[in-house]
Design a binder for these strands. Structure first.
Lengths: 200, 200
DNA sequence: CGTCTATTTGAATGTACTCAAAAGCGGTGG
DNA sequence: CCACCGCTTTTGAGTACATTCAAATAGACG
């Protein structure tokens, strides 16, 4: 039996870390819900409880908080083949402090908290899958935390370009600034400074 | 059969997320190695491969990188009942960029990469334990990343005091500065500024 | 095409760093 | 037990990195 492209994508994502029988594949897929969301719409808003963990099959999202002055602070971007949610809210069922907003028309596969637990019960090796997924995710946040306290904004910009070349072309410079942790104006200055350097 | 205090501590840590039979407890413990390390000594140095994941039963550690100018940047402190390692190196077997140094005489239980894999094979529910452990760890790094790009140094200092009251009294102000992401001089300024405020 | 938002540029300001020097504190040996 | 040594913390002056506010230009989208 043929699978949809989106289902193939998530199955291949899972098979990076665990093997699945056909039966398991189909059971897993049956626990997912397809969601589409248009650019500028929200998957999650501050105060909502994150009821799902999402796998992105198409599109681009940003995950951010707003401070008192209305400034966005982006904790991650998500594109095809990435997972996203507000983990704290998803696990604890508490209201989220995050917004998840589509930067492009986006398609996702969502697993609810209930089905997530059911999945572990029925196919325990998914514990392994998520163990490894979170372990890797942890590694990139540790790296980012380290960069945040040890590098200047200019260096952080270079690291981002290096590490996420496939993302940098799809996002506004303003959002890049909100991820790096500087104002849009200063981000603009960094770019023009670099340009001047490379022209000499 | 009675367990040592250190073994009781780690078993209780594990039992936060999974249940264990007596047999499983003893098998788990048999896969651990006891390590003690004196203040100012290293569990891991830059260039080493992290061969173990460590559970701290007594003492205090810091986990940091050094930049070109010799400045330390602390990614975490570890105390009793916490886990530590350089995850990136532990998983990939590549040389670490981190130092892990004892701030007090410290006792640990270490699980080697081989025994870690063996543990998953023999008692698969440990996948669940580590899945939840990493998930939580991920949550705190996401929070910290967010604070790093959205808060001033002074605010980050307050959050640290709030969140880790049991750590702040055991570490040097210099190390707190290296965690917050400021110079020791500026950390000192922050404190004296706060003191002045509270006196008025 | 027009409108709204993003980006650039510049001046003034604030936050945090560097370097230097003094004061405080803690551990160690005599 | 005291004195000394080394490291940490404090203080201050000068500088660099990054922000704020304002205004002009460029770009994107309906």
């Amino acid at each position: 039996m043929e699978l949809k492209d989106s289902h193939n994508l998530i199955i291949n994502n899972v098979r990076r870390f665990i093997e699945l029988t056909d039966l398991e594949k189909h059971r897993f897929i049956s626990l997912l819900k397809e969601i589409t969301i248009k650019r500028k719409n929200f998957l999650l808003q501050e105060g909502d409880v994150a009821k799902y963990e999402y796998f992105i099959t198409k599109g681009c999202l940003k995950n951010y908080t707003l401070d008192e002055s209305g400034t966005q602070h982006i904790s991650m971007f998500g594109i095809e083949n990435y997972w996203t949610t507000d983990m704290a809210s998803f696990i604890s069922n508490e209201p989220s402090r995050f917004f998840i907003e589509a930067l492009e028309d986006t398609e996702l596969l969502a697993i609810s908290r209930t089905n997530y637990e059911l999945l572990f019960k029925e196919i325990p090796k998914f514990e392994r899958f998520y163990r490894i997924l979170y372990q890797r995710s942890l590694m990139s946040y540790i790296r980012r935390t380290n960069h945040g306290i040890s590098l200047t904004a200019e260096e952080r910009y270079f690291r981002f370009k290096e590490q996420y070349p496939q993302i940098i072309n799809r996002i506004k410079q303003k959002d890049l600034a909100a991820y790096i942790g500087v104002t849009p104006e200063f981000m603009s200055m960094i770019k023009s400074k670099i340009k001047k350097k490379s022209e000499t």
